[in-house]
Design a protein around this nucleic acid. Structure first.
Lengths: 129, 129
DNA sequence: AGTTCATATCAAGAGATTTTGATATTTAGA
DNA sequence: TCTAAATATCAAAATCTCTTGATATGAACT
């Protein structure tokens, strides 16, 4: 969002809003808010939400709430192909939602933080409301 | 996930795990967990995460944290086309993340609940960790 | 060393989402 | 009633994401 364009737009919008002072305040607030929204800050957040925005990955996360599981157990549980599960696990790991521990030929996964559970709880709260 | 297939898999896995009793307990737990994961319960949650899994929609939500804004203000702020913003707003509304109030020819949007802000806070917590 | 199993990676196809431009709908005001 | 503005909707193109099947890698066991 570039500031010049925004100011041009303010001029345009100004014509349609009766209380000019109030409008002035609104758009000023808007401009400063947009300026503070940096894409670099937002993309790790998008990554987390993207990671949770899939039914298979959400199932994985819910299974891991109860404790550590290996990739092979998750493959059985989800009834998906091995490569699909591996792909989903890498997306979750990449987003920082889960952590991996290797033991011989097995890979064990666990939730990386209690914040994940809180995230799910808040989503449920919003859902039920 | 069907139970019979799961039990066949247990037989297969049993051969690779030394402590049979421990394994038995693990897989039993796994079976009961999977049985409790219903797709119907999970999809509204997926919908919420999908709604937040886009940089433009996340920007909208962050702008709305500070208060109500109309669609035209959001269009200016996001520097996107009118139809794109309208589309993103309808996805957020549909997921229950935002609420709409119509006033004349304007549509004003606001976060539907404090849970949305908490959701973002938890994501940030996870991100920073 | 050779085999087997667990997991990762890759390329291709199927499917979903996002953006765009055009066109509708609704509301306010002349 | 006519016009202009705000928003919604639609179809098509562009872009992602998911799944699959094939193959690669690396650990454990013989």
């Amino acid at each position: 969002m570039n500031r010049k364009r925004c100011e041009v737009e303010i001029e345009r919008l100004r014509r349609f809003i009766p209380e000019k002072d109030h409008f002035e305040a609104r758009t000023q607030k808007l401009i400063s808010l947009v300026d503070r929204l940096e894409e670099e800050t937002l993309s790790p957040e998008v990554k987390i939400f993207k990671a949770l925005a899939d039914i298979n990955r959400l199932k994985i996360v819910k299974l891991l709430k109860e404790g550590e599981l290996c990739a092979c157990e998750l493959t059985v549980a989800l009834d998906n192909s091995q490569s699909t599960v591996s792909h989903h696990l890498s997306i979750l790991k990449n987003a920082g939602v889960i952590k991996e521990r290797k033991d011989g030929k097995w890979s064990y996964f666990r939730l990386s933080d209690g914040a994940v559970i809180e995230l799910l709880n808040q989503a449920k709260l919003l859902m039920d409301e």
